[in-house]
Design a binder for these strands. Structure first.
Lengths: 210, 210
DNA sequence: CCCTTTCTGTCACCGAGTGTCAAGGGAGTC
DNA sequence: GACTCCCTTGACACTCGGTGACAGAAAGGG
């Protein structure tokens, strides 16, 4: 990982700044709340100017949105990787699981970020917007794997929606639980999908009217 | 309607300003785009100061959001009014229909507003946020009418989601169609619900695992 | 070593949104 | 009618998010 001079020095430098900016932003925002922290403070904490911040992110919200976008990409990628023989509920569970695994190690910080997103109207709105996009992307992939037409069939979109609803529920319960450790992300995910799975695998039979 | 002095003069005055502000805002925003119109211009067009605008609306987005909130309230109200014996798909269709009827007479303006919301990221995000809230509210009412527990059962939430997905599809197709008149809102709504209805009335049987 | 490209900080600027204050106009009281 | 109370409003000043323009520093290529 460290011995790859493929990327130019400038590119690596740029990536470094971006990472530092993201790190500083998430830390400050998660601790202080979205409105209480100014872009100037974030930039200063990362060692750059306010103007430079806006050369990396389109807006203050964008720092968080880009972070979420990465999660979404991982989810879609994981779904594409699952074997086509797997039941939709299982494949979708693994896709969502992928997001959860990304939090491993960051548990405390990740929980703060989730809480931040869910409790900040502006960020929640952006999150839902992202989620709508994920649904469409997941629906397309589901349709492919089942040989359906994503544009006409109801099932792919519905199934993706249910999976995301389960995901959303997981995040809500996780973020509002005590920090202790009584609630485990993995268990939460498994339980939620256990509830959705029957509908997920059954509704396909009722969704394609002639 | 005009002969009711129940509301004080001050209250009627206030309502007048609010209406005029909403009217001016929707007209200007729909024509010029969200970013191209300043709050100052909206306020001036309504004959008040910028400061007063912010005494009626929390933000520039809020003008549109409050407008959408009114639609959502009408929808929930209509669902509550439908007889409990009606199939979910029929009751939900009437609820959504109520929103559509509110556009009657305003056709051109309403279409511009919808296009504005769907094409402006900030507004789309807020709209999705509202929609999520509608889903929860509709889910609660559906649960009541069916004697289910909205917290534990999947069906109410799923059904509300499907109805809103159909609604969303209607708005998308309507707003992107030519202004001429080839596409009718009523027909669009009927067709969309015809597609969702089977799943809507069938999925209830598969969503309540012991 | 020079020249081009890219990145950066500084400065000026606009628009959203807020706190403050003083002025205006109803509504009730004497 | 005069006085008071309360609500609304406009004006002003300010913070912060976000952008355009310019000049300097640093990487990369000849």
């Amino acid at each position: 990982m460290t011995s790859r001079p493929a990327a130019s020095l400038a590119q690596r430098k740029r990536q470094l700044v971006a990472d530092e900016l993201t790190r500083a932003a998430l830390e400050l925002l998660a601790d202080g709340g979205f409105d209480a922290v100014t872009v100037d403070e974030i930039a200063t904490a990362a060692g750059v100017s306010k103007r430079t911040f806006f050369r990396y992110f389109a807006s203050k919200e964008d720092v968080v949105v880009q972070f979420l976008a990465a999660l979404g990409a991982a989810m879609r990628e994981e779904l594409a990787r699952r074997p086509a023989t797997e039941a939709p509920s299982v494949a979708l569970r693994h896709a969502v699981w992928r997001c959860v695994e990304d939090c491993a190690g960051h548990e405390e910080r990740a929980r703060k970020v989730v809480r931040l997103v869910l409790s900040t109207p502006a960020l929640l709105a952006r999150f839902l917007e992202r989620q709508a996009q994920w649904r469409d992307e997941l629906a397309v992939q589901l349709a492919e794997r089942l040989g359906l037409d994503a544009g006409r069939e109801l099932y792919p979109r519905l199934a993706a929606d249910m999976a995301l609803a389960a995901f959303h529920t997981v995040l809500q319960r996780w973020s509002t639980a005590d920090a202790g450790g009584g609630v485990d992300l993995v268990v939460l995910t498994r339980d939620s999908f256990a509830v959705v799975a029957p509908a997920l695998d059954a509704v396909v039979r009722t969704s394609a009217p002639a």
